[in-house]
Structure formats: C-alpha cells, structure tokens
Design a protein around this nucleic acid. Structure first.
Length: 476
DNA sequence: ATGTTC
C-alpha cells in the first residue's frame, strides 16, 4: 500500500477518513515499511468493516495485518448491541478461538541439544498433526456436550491437564454462555476424534530457547530467563470451528438483506447481536471457543508426557493461553463513558495493561502476556500488554508476524524439503506430515517479526519482554 | 483455517 493514501496521525498510526458507507474511520498501526509491504486489500477490508452497523470508534488493523476472509487478519472492531451492532462469522474467522499457549520448562538449551533429535521424533509421534489428523480420544454425545460447555476445565477434569493451568487461560479456561445445542451434529461429528490434534496450516508446536530479555521485571513475573526453554502451541477449534463458521456464514449471508444490512462484501456476512440468529451464532461460537481451549489443554498434556519421558521429573508450567479469533462481550470506555461492546479480534489478541482487574494476580503489576508467534525459522516474542492499548484499540495487539506472501506464491518459490534442510543447518529441527505445508509456511513468506513487534511497542499496544528462537518445530 | 470442492 502507498502511505500517501493515508493520513499519518502518529509515528506508527495511519487514518483513513470515513467515505461512502463508512460509519467510522479505519486506523492502521504500522511503520511506513510495513504499510508498503501490505496488500491494498488490507485497507479495503478495514474500510469495509467500518461500514457495518453499530461499529464503535474505528475499524483497526494491527501491524501484522494481511488480507483475510472478509475482515483483515489482524483486524479489531467493536460493536454496540444497543445501536444495531452486529456479530460476523467471517469477522471471527473459520478457526474459532485459534490461539497460542506458551509453557515454561525448568530446562536450559544445553539440556535439549543432546536429545534434540529424539525429542523432535517423540513430539512428532505423540502430537497428531496435519489436515484430518485424529487423536486417541473419541467423544460420545455426552462427552461432546460437556467439552463444549466446559472448555479447558473439562479437559482438566478428565485428567488431561492441571487445575493450576486454568487461571492462566483466558476466561479461566471456560467461556460462559456456550450453547452446544446450536452447534450442528455435523460440526460435532467432525470433532469427535479431533481433540488433542494440531491441525494444519499455520498451526504448530515449537520448543523454543529464550534468547533475549527486554524487560527484566516482566520477564521475572512471567518466569522467562535467558537460555531457558519454553514450549509454544498454536492451534484452534479444528473441524468443529470450521463447520460452525461455514454454516453460520451461509445463513448470515442469506438473511442479512432482510435484517436491513447492506454488505460491501459477502464475506462480511453478519447478524445483529440482538437477533435470534446473532444469539444462536454467539452460543455456538462460545462452544467453539471451549473446543479450542480444551484442545490446547490436551495438547499441553501430551507435551508434558513427552517431556516427562525425556526429562523425568520436569514440569511444564503454563505461562498463558490466549485466543486470536474471537468475538467477546467486554466493557470499554469510549469518550468517557463505559459501554458494553462486542469486540471482534481476528488474528489479534487481547492486550491488558498492568492494573487491569481481570488479570491473574501474577500479571497484575506488569500486564498480560501477549504471545507473538513468528514463523518457523524466525523469532517469536512475548510482549506485555500496555494500559494505553485500551484507548488505542480496545486493549488489543498483534498476534504474529503476519503473512507477507500468499500460500500459492510461497509454493512457487520454495520446496518443503529445501526449507527443512536449511533450517536443520541452523539448528532448527522441523517435523511435518506435509512438505507442501512446510513450503507454504516458509519463513520468507512472513513479514519481519522484529518490525511488527517494534511497531506494536511504538504504538503503545504492548511492550517487548522476551525474544525466543526455535529449536524444534512440529508443523501441521 | 478446512475430512484443502457436500
């Protein structure tokens, strides 16, 4: 995109004034080079979101934003249910509650290196990865219902996790007001054997080394130390979330006209929050969130078992588990008034600053861990939420490096084998069932994660705490 | 993202 198309309103903040059907401005957080690297469709999609009924303040794009389905990935938008505000299936995305968790080990890099190869093989064997991957767990109807209501709490009750994990998961590990009876049988059937599986695309499990600390106080509060080893898992609600998204998108697209909603793009299909369809989607989507929370909890448990085998007595303590694709009711202050809004974050995370009452005690003084997944060959970051993120973007921040290149373009440029070999030469072991998937996820297909996190920091969304480099990557 | 076109 050409920065000349926008009004620069801060060092890393650009504004598009409302024109045509836009109800509010669009705001993009990025430096000039990130803007230049973004597809024109990022601004187009952010402007399309700004036309939706009941949108409050602005339609936002984070520094990692790229072209997505309807909403940009890296998009944030809040809607007021009392002002005709909508909920959009495309705005949440097909992978409902896709997210990241990072777990702390007491190990150092020198402990991993002698067993790196064996550990990679064990993780690859024990963590089902890839499209259509199935796990050892099969859920009957009653268990499905309990999982969709209970989320990670259900997983812990079943023995696939630890009680102490729950306070380190958004919503305490369980999204309230989930309505499994609004989830179709087809969605449930797709998920019956997919609990504890990684899936494909950008999903992964990584063993990472902490390489640099930027904020000593926050790093200490988070339990991150130089040369320490952490495990990060990125995945979502698998077939269930996808099926919910597909079904409601279709229904929302066909009923939007009768709800009086004019869609600039069919992919923005939505329904009023205060409507029968809106309520039904929200109930089903919350069940989808619980599926993702349970899935990540089980994957964490599988990881603990593998680490326990290689390093008897070692613990994996959950640092934090945060979702990237959600629509949640939240209280925000807008022009001095507190309002109950529904915030869509699509490829964006919550980023609560120090002092926020909904933070776990351990994070009260430093802010929420904001987990930034890089690409396979590059750094990942842990940031800390900044109080200024509230006024900037409804307490949100970026979620990853963000794609710079389409999957198709990446496939033309790289082979999976070549990427695996190149990374192995740099001490990064990649294991994946799909060469094609590895090529699509080539590090070169992503933006410069350093530039993305620096832009988020300069924008006052979150500040850098620690940088990690990958040692092992199990890629879906 | 996705039993990658029910």
């Amino acid at each position: 995109m050409d920065p000349a198309n926008f009004t620069q309103i801060g060092p890393v903040m650009w504004r598009i004034e409302p024109t045509g059907a836009m109800r509010v401005p669009a705001i993009i957080f990025a430096d000039e080079e990130l803007i230049r690297g973004m597809d024109d469709r990022v601004a187009l999609q952010a402007c399309n979101v700004a036309t939706l009924p009941g949108i409050v303040s602005a339609s936002f794009a984070m520094p990692d934003a790229h072209w997505g389905y309807g909403f940009p990935i890296g998009g944030v938008a809040a809607f007021d249910p009392e002002k005709g505000g909508v909920v959009s299936a495309g705005g949440v995305g097909f992978d409902i509650s896709c997210g990241v968790r990072t777990m702390l080990t007491s190990l150092s890099v020198k402990d991993i290196l002698p067993v790196q190869e064996a550990l990679a093989e064990s993780l690859f064997r024990q963590i089902p990865a890839g499209a259509g991957s199935r796990g050892k767990i099969t859920l009957d109807d009653a268990e499905m219902e309990a999982m969709l209501v209970g989320g990670a709490r259900w997983a812990v009750e079943q023995g696939w996790g630890e009680e102490r994990d729950l306070e380190r998961i958004e919503e305490g590990g369980r999204m309230e007001d989930a309505r499994p009876h609004y989830v179709s049988d087809r969605a449930k059937n797709r998920q019956r054997r997919e609990m504890g599986t990684l899936g494909s695309g950008n999903h992964y499990l990584e063993v990472q080394a902490v390489e640099q600390i930027f904020d000593e106080e926050a790093a200490a509060a988070y339990g991150l130390r130089p040369d320490g080893v952490v495990v990060t898992i990125h995945c979502g609600s698998r077939g269930l979330g996808h099926q919910i998204g597909s079904e409601f998108l279709k229904e929302m697209a066909s009923t939007a006209p009768e709800a009086g909603i004019i869609l600039p793009d069919r992919e923005l299909a939505c329904a009023p929050i205060k409507s029968e369809l809106g309520e039904r989607y929200l109930g089903a989507m919350r069940a989808g969130i619980n599926c993702a929370l349970a899935n990540r909890e089980i994957l964490g448990d599988l990881s603990r078992r593998v680490f326990g085998h290689h390093f008897p007595g070692t613990r994996l303590d959950l640092l934090f588990d945060v979702s990237h694709n959600t629509c949640k009711p939240e209280t925000h202050e807008v022009d001095g008034k507190r309002r109950e809004l529904f915030v869509h974050r699509k490829g964006a995370t919550r980023s609560l600053g120090a002092g926020n009452p909904s933070l776990p005690r351990a994070f009260h003084a430093v802010g929420q861990p904001v987990l930034i997944g890089g690409s396979m060959g590059t750094s990942s970051y842990v940031l800390a939420g900044e109080p200024t993120s509230e006024e900037k973007a409804f307490s949100s921040a970026c979620h990853g490096a963000g794609r710079a290149m389409s999957r198709h373009a990446a496939l033309k440029q790289w082979s999976g084998r070549q990427i695996v070999d190149e990374l192995a030469a740099r001490g990064i072991l990649v294991r994946s069932p799909s060469d094609r998937g590895v090529a699509e996820e080539a590090p070169g297909a992503y933006k410069d994660v350093e530039a993305v996190v620096l832009a988020a920091e300069r924008a006052g969304l979150a500040r850098r705490v620690a940088r990690m480099r990958p040692l092992i990557c199990i890629k879906g």
